[in-house]
């Protein structure tokens, strides 16, 4: 129903039960994502209510390096684009191309994570840690949970790639790739909000 865009090129579903299962998977995943919205809304709300509570200690805004976070944003947004390319390849039934694009997506996700680890360690070295102030705690919780989501997405994509696709692209495995992709795009969208709220607006003000 919701995944109209993806008409699998491979053999159709083996049984009505299997077709139903794939339909369920996509629907279930959208439902899960709405729960994730509530999760991140709670974290963003927490951040907005505490971000001025710096307790006179080091503030985030004094440490933000916009070019660095800009590069992170760029890599993550590009990874969404490459995920779309993976989908397109899947729709055309091109297994190799799909795998390549998934690897590129994973690579860009890894670049993002690597930069984030660098960013966090830089902050910690500058005396801005979880224990610095309530604002710092809220920052690490929000941005850290997003980072964990990226890491889980990475784990997921690599899990999929380790999956043999021995029968090529089939109805049974397109929905697995599709929901991994949905997740990846969702995590990107959350980053756009975090980038705006946490990094861009305070720096601009």
């Amino acid at each position: 129903m919701i995944n109209q865009g993806v008409e699998p090129a491979g053999p159709g579903p083996v049984s009505p039960e299997q077709a139903k299962a794939q339909d369920n998977r996509v629907l279930g995943f959208w439902i899960f994502l709405s729960g994730e919205c509530a999760f991140f809304a709670s974290l963003i709300g927490t951040y907005l209510s505490l971000n001025t509570h710096t307790a006179g200690a080091t503030t985030l805004v004094s440490l933000i390096d916009l070019p660095l976070t800009g590069l992170m944003t760029l890599s993550l947004l590009t990874s969404s684009l490459t995920m779309v390319f993976a989908f397109l390849a899947m729709n055309r039934g091109e297994l190799q191309a799909m795998k390549v694009w998934l690897w590129v997506t994973a690579l860009l996700g890894a670049v993002f994570l690597d930069l984030q680890i660098f960013e966090f360690s830089h902050y910690m070295a500058s005396g801005f840690t979880m224990g610095t102030s309530a604002a710092a705690s809220a920052f690490f919780a929000l941005v850290g949970f997003h980072g964990l989501h990226v890491a889980f997405g990475l784990f997921w994509i690599i899990s999929l790639l380790s999956y043999s696709f021995k029968d090529g692209i089939t109805a049974a495995n397109t929905s697995k790739v599709w929901i991994a992709g949905l997740y990846w795009h969702f995590v990107d969208v959350v980053w756009v909000i975090i980038f705006t709220v946490v990094y861009l607006l305070p720096k601009v003000h």
């Binding site: 999760f39 709670s42 979880m130 705690s137």
Partner: peptide, 29 residues
Amino acid sequence: FPPFTVNLFLLMFDRLMGANFFNIAKGGN
């Protein structure tokens, strides 16, 4: 449940990792 999940995480961070979400001395609420 997601707000509860977040809340439990915040408490866990305060108790186990020295965060300050609820520690008034460091600006918590």
